[in-house]
Every structure is written in structure tokens, then in C-alpha cells.
């Protein structure tokens, strides 16, 4: 308790903005192997954004809300199991961190894509991955086409996209973007009791196209768009790793 109070005081002093309480609370609940499904259901039901994403995850084949077979949080959790809530707890901080990064460093407002809007990325692509290990283990992948990567890197570096030809500079900017979102994600996991460590980011420039994966057990896939920039983020996680 004292440690928590000390942290709150320091966070106020340094001006650190925490993730929303509901997201932290959800991660804490899911982090416990003996989680209370009713408590998780209540928490998600009270937050419109969490509720909307959970129902999307629970109805992967539906093209619109009208087609949802599982149309309440309770039915989704009880029929799909805690895996759905787990994906929500992992994916939401990543989406939050990515949106905040774009708004803060690029002055761009990201729009979240629905699963139906996720389209294959034409080559050449940039792929960045960061592995994390500890009480939670997994990988976060950030994927985008070369034109999206160039637009992002140019904006971060204050250059015109046409003047940015250096692939190393573009890769470094993609790696740092991944580093920032994963660092925020890791902080949320640690604060929820799932201590883990990050590996340095790895970035590849590849000539292969990428088809978005279908979200499922232990895998969340998120898509984002702003103007001509399209990004895909996958997170695969085992929250109860034995280290």
C-alpha cells in the first residue's frame, strides 16, 4: 500500500499519465488464475469501449453488430471463456499507447479498424517484433507497408517523405514506435502483477505480403488507419508463464 502511495505521489510529481483505471483493473483481474468471471463481466459492461471490442472478439465472423450471435458481455464471457477477456486486457493498452503516440508525436488521430476492414498489406513491408518474458510471455508485432513506414518516419524526423530514402532510418523509427507502445503495454502488465522484461526490438524490411491473422485464443490482431497510413498490431501472450 505504501509503495502504491509513493508511486502515485511520484507519478503526480513527474506528470506521468497512467492507463485508464478500468484497463488496469481488467488486467489485474485477468492476471489472477482464479479470476471471478462475474467481476470481469461487470467491469467490461460498465466501459462502452471495452464492451464493444469484447463483442467484436466474441463474434469474429459477424460483419455488423446486427449479426452478433453473442450480443451481451455475459454471454460472450461465459461462452467464449476468459480468453476473450484476456485478449481485451492485452490489446486495449497497446491500442491506447499507439493512439497516444500518434496524437502526441505525430499530431495524427488514429482510427481503429474493425476486423472486416483488415486487408492484406502489399509488399514491401516493414515488420517489427518485440518479445517479452517473465510472468507473462509473448510477442508484439507491428506491421505496415513501406509507404506507411516512410510517412511515419518522415513525420517523426521532420522530413518530406520523398526525401527519406534511408531504410535504416525508417527501420529505426518503426522500431522506436514499437518500443514506445510495448513499453507502455509492459508497464500495464507489471502494474497488474505480471512482471516481465522486454527484449530489444527487431525490425525487418521484407518483400513478402502479409495477410492479417484471425484473432483467436491467445492472439489479438488490431488494425489502425489515418490518411494513407495503415498499421496492424498482433499480440500473442501466455499470461501465466512459469518463467
Amino acid at each position: 500500500m505504501q509503495q502504491s502511495a509513493d508511486y502515485r505521489e511520484l507519478a503526480r510529481h513527474y506528470g506521468l499519465a497512467p492507463v485508464p483505471d478500468s484497463v488496469l483493473r481488467l488486467t489485474q483481474l485477468v492476471a489472477r488464475q482464479d479470476s471471478d468471471l462475474e467481476e470481469i463481466t461487470q467491469l467490461i459492461d460498465q466501459e462502452p469501449a471495452l464492451r464493444k471490442r469484447l463483442l467484436q472478439l466474441a463474434n469474429p465472423g459477424a460483419k455488423s453488430e446486427a449479426e452478433y450471435e453473442l450480443d451481451t458481455v455475459e454471454r460472450a464471457i461465459f461462452q467464449r471463456g476468459i480468453g476473450c477477456a484476456l485478449l481485451l486486457a492485452m490489446g486495449t493498452p497497446l491500442a491506447f499507447a499507439l493512439a497516444k503516440t500518434f496524437q502526441t508525436m505525430l499530431a495524427l488521430k488514429l482510427e481503429t479498424l474493425t476486423p472486416q476492414q483488415l486487408k492484406p498489406i502489399d509488399p514491401p513491408c516493414f515488420l517489427g517484433t518485440i518479445a517479452f518474458g517473465g510472468k507473462a510471455a509473448g510477442t508484439v508485432c507491428l506491421r505496415m507497408g513501406a509507404s506507411s513506414a516512410t510517412l511515419i518516419a518522415a513525420k517523426i524526423l521532420g522530413m518530406e517523405p520523398k526525401d527519406l530514402k534511408d531504410l535504416t532510418a525508417i527501420s529505426d523509427a518503426v522500431g522506436e514506435l514499437l518500443n514506445i507502445i510495448t513499453g507502455n503495454f509492459k508497464s500495464n502488465l507489471c502494474d497488474a502483477g505480471l512482471n516481465c522484461r522486454l527484449q530489444p526490438p527487431k525490425v525487418w524490411h521484407t518483400s513478402e505480403a502479409y495477410t492479417p491473422a484471425v484473432p483467436g485464443v491467445g492472439l489479438e490482431c488490431l488494425g489502425f488507419r489515418v490518411g494513407q497510413i495503415v498499421l496492424l498490431v498482433d499480440v500473442s501472450v501466455n499470461p501465466w508463464n512459469e518463467e
Binding site: Q3, D6, A11, T182, G183, N184, S187, C190, D191, L198
Partner: peptide
């Protein structure tokens, strides 16, 4: 200047 601002990190660094 870091993306990691978990309680433990902030307390240790402080």
C-alpha cells in the same frame, strides 16, 4: 526519457 513507467521502474529509478 522512457516508455516504461511501471510502478516498480519509477520507484527504483527515483
Amino acid at each position: 526519457l522512457t516508455a516504461e513507467s511501471s510502478q516498480e521502474n519509477v520507484l527504483q529509478i527515483s
